[in-house]
Design a protein around this nucleic acid. Structure first.
Lengths: 124, 124
DNA sequence: CTGGATCCCGTTAGATACTG
DNA sequence: CAGTATCTAACGGGATCCAG
């Protein structure tokens, strides 16, 4: 049988996991992750073009967070004009791989979701 | 070779996929999905307890959206006091399965992320 | 009493302009 | 080029209110 301490430890851990999921299951994080995975090392502005709809602010913020979480490596080249590039760490790569299933799901089930939406809206 | 029309169609599709990812890669959606997958059919309030930190407002909103997208089925029993329960559709189940890799990743790499964070914060 | 809608408020995202 | 600053608009949380 499991001790009370073990149960409490598990609860703390799953709270942390939920927290991490909350961080990582974010629209921009996923999209940036995908852009970095697909096109490899690239610069800030390139990356921005690869993630349609993102603002520079959210791009900066998302990249900072991903860097802090160890998903992305940021390299500053001390030149003028400034040159900064980003690439996935192995941790970031592994997350991207984990997200692969979601991408496939989205591609495969896009039509079903659209159908469900129109059916739902009609029902209103 | 691919016609211009095909390329444009692909771009529209990938925009739609990005959009769908944006909807589905949401903290609360993922957490609700997981709670429904793990505990099966359940009522509004139960579900709320299973997703720690969610407000009733976001629970309602998330469930409505998931219902509209065909991920969740909502059943109202016309009794007093009201009884409403929710369960995953097969589409919802398949998404939950697709997310499975992310959950495993989060559990497996929690420590690495924490380490990366403290290292990053120390560097400041 | 449950499920959920509404209102108010603080936080956050987005657009634009500006800087080293 | 790669951000930061600023403003506004939208969103999330909490309390309250309502219908069955």
């Amino acid at each position: 049988m499991r001790s009370e301490a073990e149960v409490m430890a598990d609860e703390r851990v799953s709270a942390l996991v939920d927290d991490l999921i909350g961080r990582v299951a974010d629209k921009w994080t996923m999209l940036v992750l995908e852009a970095l995975e697909e096109h490899g090392l690239q610069r800030f502005t390139q990356l921005g073009r690869r993630v349609p709809g993102i603002s520079q602010k959210m791009l900066t913020q998302t990249l900072r967070q991903m860097e802090r979480d160890g998903l992305v490596e940021r390299t500053v080249h001390p030149v003028v004009p400034p040159h900064v590039d980003y690439c996935l760490t192995s941790l970031g790569s592994s997350l991207s791989e984990a997200f692969c299933g979601v991408w496939l799901w989205a591609e495969a089930n896009l039509r079903k979701v659209e159908a469900a939406r129109t059916a739902f809206d009609r029902r209103e």
